[in-house]
Design a protein around this nucleic acid. Structure first.
Length: 434
RNA sequence: GUCCCCAUCGUCUAGCCUGGUCUAGGACAAGAGCUUUUCAAGCUCUCGACACCGGUUCAAAUCCGGUUGGGGACGCCA
């Protein structure tokens, strides 16, 4: 039975690198009908926070990585002490007294050559003579990372340890512990790291790292997952958009790259746009409603879902992130809109009050108020005025929406409604005169 | 400083294992154009890489060695 685990430490949020490690573990388990376990490495009592545990769990769920089991290292201290005693009895460890008189258990590192056969990197050889003796149990009684990690991986019957490259140098230390405690060795696969655009490791200062940030920026979990899986892995047939079910079928840990990858947010944007375009408008509507509530654009208990659905459809093909909708469609919800100064300068420098007035009247004369009729009426008017359609379309859009970007003008007018359209235009005329 | 990992367009990568089919393919970004009612989408085109040196070989992006560059680890953090 294939058993893999993701072992985050709740001393911070789940970040991009951790999410990808979790993804590859999860993919490997699913592709081999194995199990994906979660182990919260909260042995550092002072730095571990309950909020982070919650946050990590929520992020993993949001990404869709369900786990088969979860355990907490802070509840297993007795087990680690027991195995430390075993190491002591077996002559592999010794006790060291600190100045305060407290005792720590230290592992004796025997100089030797240790070879690992990494699933991604191939053979790696270490000389343990350059490794110092390792603390197993600190003088406060808590276990160190390398020790609790080995005990748990062995006891949890982890068959494949898939983790970041940064753990390569821990591996020989851990192998020594496996041998001393008589545990069978698992397979190892060390994933390349994700680097920041500026070079170096990802960190708070170098680009957004927390998964929750991407969530609140309006990225779809499946888009983020698709992006993450392409960082260091490729199905090999020039495909970029790969759903999770397909990824499970195609994934092979041996095809994972050895070289570190740099985050390219532009590509994430593109992938997100691809998913957004093909997403069911109804589900996007559900996703967008809480955002609108938060912005106070709509009332939580009283809003017209069908209306929002039609607006979502209007913007859907042009969204990069979900939040774009909130930003771009604001004029449908706001009473008073602010006109972008640049847009004003570009399209409203000339006095168009006469044209606006004629258009307001024309709207009254339409026998129907639908998109086709509005457009027909408008085209008639510009013909009479003998001006280009564009010359009036853009200024009207700016007055109605405050922006130069947005859906087609006639759709905008239709969904804004006759009254609001006329009101915004006449209000603008009045304001400009004074 | 010591040890370890890595190296194909600006970025993600295919190809490398099993040398010839590679004047190195795709995607993102960038640039140009088409379409057009702005933006986005879509379509077409352009720009653009085997880090360097040496070796093996009839033949090297592919195999070997070194150099350089990048990254990581050396905690009673995880």
């Amino acid at each position: 039975m294939i058993r893999v685990r993701f072992a985050p430490s709740p001393t911070g949020n789940l970040h991009i690198g951790g999410a990808r490690t979790a993804l590859f573990n999860w993919l490997y388990a699913r592709s081999k009908s194995g199990q994906f376990l979660l182990r919260i490495e909260d042995t550092d009592l002072s730095r571990s926070k309950k909020e982070y545990v919650e946050e990590i769990l929520n992020s993993l769920k949001w990404l869709g990585f369900e786990w088969d089991e979860v355990c907490y290292q802070s509840q297993r201290f007795d087990i680690y002490r027991e195995y430390a005693q075993k190491a002591l009895k077996g002559g592999h460890a010794y006790i060291e007294k600190s100045e305060s008189g407290r005792e720590a258990i230290i592992f004796k590192v025997v100089p030797q050559k240790v070879k690992i056969n990494d699933l991604i990197h191939g053979e790696i050889e270490f000389d343990t003579s350059v490794i110092k003796d390792q603390v197993l149990i600190k003088s406060d009684g808590t276990p160190t990372y390398n020790f609790s990690c080995v005990v748990d991986d062995a006891l949890m019957k982890i068959s494949h340890i898939i983790r970041g490259d940064d753990h390569i140098s821990n591996t020989p230390k851990q192998i020594l512990l496996y041998q001393a405690l008589g545990f069978p060795l698992p397979e190892f696969a060390h994933l390349p790291l994700i680097l920041a655009k500026e070079g170096g490791r990802m960190s708070k200062r170098k680009g957004a790292t927390a998964i929750t940030e991407y969530r609140s920026m309006g990225y779809l979990p499946k888009a983020l997952v698709n992006f993450l899986m392409l960082l260091g892995w490729s199905p090999g047939d020039n495909r970029e958009i790969i759903g999770i079910e397909e990824a499970i079928k195609l994934f092979d840990i041996r095809n994972v790259n050895k070289a570190a990858a740099v985050m390219d947010l532009d590509k994430l944007d593109w992938i997100n746009n691809q998913y957004l375009k093909n997403e069911d408008p109804a589900s996007l509507t559900e996703a967008v409603i809480p955002m609108l509530v938060e912005k106070k654009y709509i009332d939580k208990d009283k809003f017209d879902k069908d209306y929002i659905l039609s607006l979502v459809k209007l913007f859907q093909p042009r969204l990069t992130v979900l939040n774009d909708f909130v930003d771009w469609a604001d004029f449908f919800f706001l009473k008073d809109i602010t006109i972008d100064p640049e847009a004003k300068q570009k399209y409203l420098a000339r006095d168009l009050s006469k044209e606006f007035k004629l258009f307001i009247d024309r709207l009254d004369k339409l026998d129907k108020f639908d998109i086709v009729t509005i457009e027909a009426g408008f085209r008639e008017l510009v013909k009479e005025l003998n001006i280009e359609a564009k010359a009036l379309i853009h200024p009207i859009r700016v007055v109605l929406t405050g922006k130069t970007i947005g859906p087609g003008l006639f759709e905008v007018i239709y969904y804004l409604g006759k009254e609001r359209t006329q009101e915004r235009l006449s209000k603008f005329i009045k304001k400009e005169r004074t």
